[in-house]
Amino acid sequence: MTGRILMTIAHRAAILAYIVFALFPLFWLLKVSVTPNDLLYSEGVRLWPSHTTFEHYRFVIENSAFPTFFKNSLIVACSTSVAVTVLSSLAGYALSRFRFRGKYAIVALMLITQMFPLVMLVAPIFKMLSPLGLTNSLTGLVIVYTAFNVPFATFLMQSFFDGIPKDLEEAAMIDGASRFIAFRQIILPLTLPGIAATLGFVFTAAWSELLFALMLISGNTSATFPVGLLTFVSKFSVDFGQMMAAGVMALIPACLFFLLIQRYLVQGLTAGAVKG
């Protein structure tokens, strides 16, 4: 019995250690964002400044294009994550359930796209998108991000489909349902944790992508959030207070998103379905 209690204490302590490790840098971000500029260096090592200010936040909201960046990032990240999830569920299902010629070619193709440093695609992609009028547009960014994220998402979805017994849709198909109906009505609901994980990954990846946003977008009207953050870093001075304030605000949608998808990760839907 004492062994059990000790295990529980060790378990909670380990969880707590992870939480502290995960949150401390974010706490520091918050701390710097509310530290007045004159205390930034003199009280740099203190855990909390002797007095705080929201000056940095006010400056960012009132004097910069951050609200626009924010809206743009939200549009791009939401569109990309939905598009990727839909496309990768289909492709992941094909890789999981069918044996067909060309399957390994598809896997190889998708693996290769993960291996090339994306830096090298900037110039060719710019050359291809510009005659289509897709540079400097959020649509172009969504297309590029969707393509970049779809290979990984497909592997992820395939893994989740692999974990679901084939008997489930085979039974439905023997009962007369077409494969697509079986896929949509039986398999997809069982993969909800996987779908939530995929949405989460893609959302954050699209939310924080810097390189292509920087190269494909010029001007403030379609700039995304990370590009906006970069405008705070000039060659000669870095206003850390304002940048951290902007950073804290950038975290808000991501936090909300994670809170929303938590429960799908926790639900062990597959276990219940197989048992029943």
């Binding site: 969880i15 995960a22 840098p25 810097l210 936090c255």
Partner: peptide, 30 residues
């Protein structure tokens, strides 16, 4: 707990890098 420990993934890498560079700086980081 799960929401909190997964949070770092949502931080833009650019910001994460700067933030850690600050944490390692003896003048302003602990």
């Amino acid at each position: 707990a799960q929401a909190l420990v997964f949070l770092p993934w949502a931080v833009p890498t650019f910001l994460a890098g700067l933030n850690w560079a600050w944490l390692f700086n003896p003048v302003i980081g602990p």
